[in-house]
């Protein structure tokens, strides 16, 4: 599974403009991303652009729809911060609830090195720690799920 990151480093080198305008897409999105604006609409001639931001922790989509005549929609996932996937270190049983208390919940802010959970592999706990500081966007597997090596268990929206 490929990790999805934004802004894309390759795109930094080459400026891309919103079709028919002189607005740099990357600059535009980074400005928008740092505001509280959740929806943005723009119309000029036959250009119709709608940008929507989703609440943190949900992924709406990951495609950029480029269609000059019908306007342009850039999905919210593209606007957000880089997403890190945390994969299972072992074949075993996945845990993120200790006692009755989850170590993390969706929406929690975590520091780099924070304990997220563990995989019990033949009775030996294999700890899962956050490789970055950020916000828990998704807990993909449920408590007590059997997981294999390398499968994604958490998605974390990395602080930039």
């Amino acid at each position: 599974m490929k990790k999805k990151t934004w802004p894309n480093k390759n795109r930094k080198k080459k400026k891309e403009f919103i079709f028919g305008t002189d607005i740099d897409i990357e600059e535009f999105l980074s400005v928008l991303g740092s505001t509280d604006v959740t929806e943005f609409e723009f119309e000029k001639g036959d250009i119709h652009l709608i940008v929507k931001k989703s609440p943190v922790g949900e992924i709406i989509g990951d495609t950029v729809n480029v269609s000059p005549s019908a306007g342009k929609e850039i999905s919210a996932a593209e606007v957000r911060k880089p997403m890190r996937e945390i994969s299972s270190p072992a074949v075993g049983i996945f845990h993120f609830i200790e006692g009755d208390v989850p170590l993390v919940n969706v929406g929690d802010s975590v520091k780099k090195g924070a304990r997220l959970g563990w995989v019990d592999s033949l009775g030996i706990p294999q700890e899962i720690k956050s490789p970055v500081s950020g916000k828990i966007a998704q807990i993909i597997r449920r408590e007590n799920d059997v997981v294999e090596w390398g499968e994604t268990l958490f998605r974390i929206e990395e602080n930039v």
Binding site: V91, L122, E148, G150
Partner: peptide, 26 residues
């Protein structure tokens, strides 16, 4: 099927604990 490790054999096809864990859990 169960993925037990990355490509190098010592980490996957020779990784006894992961293979046994897969056999037990399955």
């Amino acid at each position: 099927r169960v993925c037990v490790g990355p490509a190098p054999a010592p980490a996957s096809y020779l990784n006894i604990s992961q293979i046994i864990s897969a056999a037990v859990l399955k």
